[in-house]
């Protein structure tokens, strides 16, 4: 039976355990995760250090296999070794340190590495490399040496390398942790564009709450389990709970929350400077009008 589904990633009761160094204690990095990610979604995954979020991400392209439960990528079970290559072509991964992901001496060779390995014909590789570099805005650096690029540029080359494999989904594991503010912006703009314009499913793992707020949906992992799963507004307006989970909310969201506690009635779900400024200039005008009436 050919099951057509809108979900590109489905995990069912996913458990991943490993034994501690002395082999005595069984640890569960993932303790029963049920998650579905639809085609074209932009999902952010957040959680404290050691919560299991990277372990989860590594199940999405079969770098890790479940101890029990199942992971299906585009309907393919990751446990079945025959699916391995098709799964890796479906889901591409980008990691934290750009320097560990560079394999060649020029940008175009680096991007071509994946499709070459797949045995894609040279003309087609050429086409894919050009297109992938265009998508990440790095075409003019085609013949540059990757190690001389900035951090943000290196990460965009790493993303292009993944794109050249024609994946349906990209999983990025803290791709901006080592970048400066403009590098972060470059990478996030690229990721957003790929999601909106090319329809590529994005799973972004991050410690930066303002980045997570860009997602259509935020999944919060703690102690190997999903503890929250909702749109960013609903997640970050629960300031106390988020902080108990060792996470944080964007500064403007925290400020909106604090102001409410002090009696200023404004929506608590502002995520950006613009949104909070709108809300505050509204109540400022009201308070000015009120004072005329006094």
């Amino acid at each position: 039976m050919n099951r057509v589904s809108d979900e590109i990633i489905i995990t069912e009761n996913l458990v991943y355990s490993y034994s501690s160094e002395d082999q005595e204690i069984e640890m569960q990095a993932l303790a029963g995760v049920n998650l579905s990610i639809a085609r074209g979604e932009f999902v952010a995954i957040i959680g404290r250090n050691g919560s299991g979020k990277s372990t989860l991400a590594k199940h999405f392209n079969a770098l890790f296999l479940p101890t029990s439960g199942t992971v299906r990528i585009n309907g393919m079970d990751t446990q079945d070794p025959r699916n391995l290559w098709r799964i890796r072509q479906t889901v591409g991964m980008v990691f934290q340190n750009p320097d560990n992901q560079i394999v060649s001496t020029t940008v175009e060779e680096d991007v071509a590495f994946g499709p070459e390995n797949l045995g894609v014909p040279p003309d087609e590789i050429r086409r894919r490399v050009n297109l992938a570099l265009e998508w990440v805005g790095m075409s003019e650096y085609m013949r540059h040496a990757p190690h001389l690029l900035s951090g943000g540029q290196k990460q965009r080359v790493a993303i292009a390398g993944v794109l050249a494999m024609r994946p349906k989904c990209i999983v990025l594991d803290e791709p901006t942790a080592m970048l400066d503010p403009s590098g972060r912006r470059e990478v996030l703009d690229t990721v957003k564009r790929l999601n909106k314009e090319e329809g590529i499913t994005v799973v972004l793992i991050t410690h930066f709450m303002d980045e997570a707020a860009l997602g259509d949906r935020v999944v919060v992992i703690d102690q190997g389990k999903i503890v929250m799963d909702d749109v960013p507004r609903k997640i970050f307006s629960q300031v106390e709970l988020i902080r108990q989970l060792h996470l944080d909310v964007p500064q403007v969201t925290r400020l909106a929350h604090e102001l409410n506690k002090s009696g200023v009635t404004i929506p608590e779900d502002a995520l950006t400077v613009e949104e909070l400024a709108d809300a505050l200039s509204g109540s400022y005008r009201e308070s000015a009008v009120a004072s005329y009436g006094e």
């Binding site: 400066d180 500064q251 400020l255 400077v273 909070l276 400024a277 505050l280 200039s281």
Partner: peptide
Amino acid sequence: AGLEAPQVTRLMQELARRNM
């Protein structure tokens, strides 16, 4: 310099631009 002030600082600058 390719940098940005913290979110709250930028919020106050934005409010000032809106005549608060």
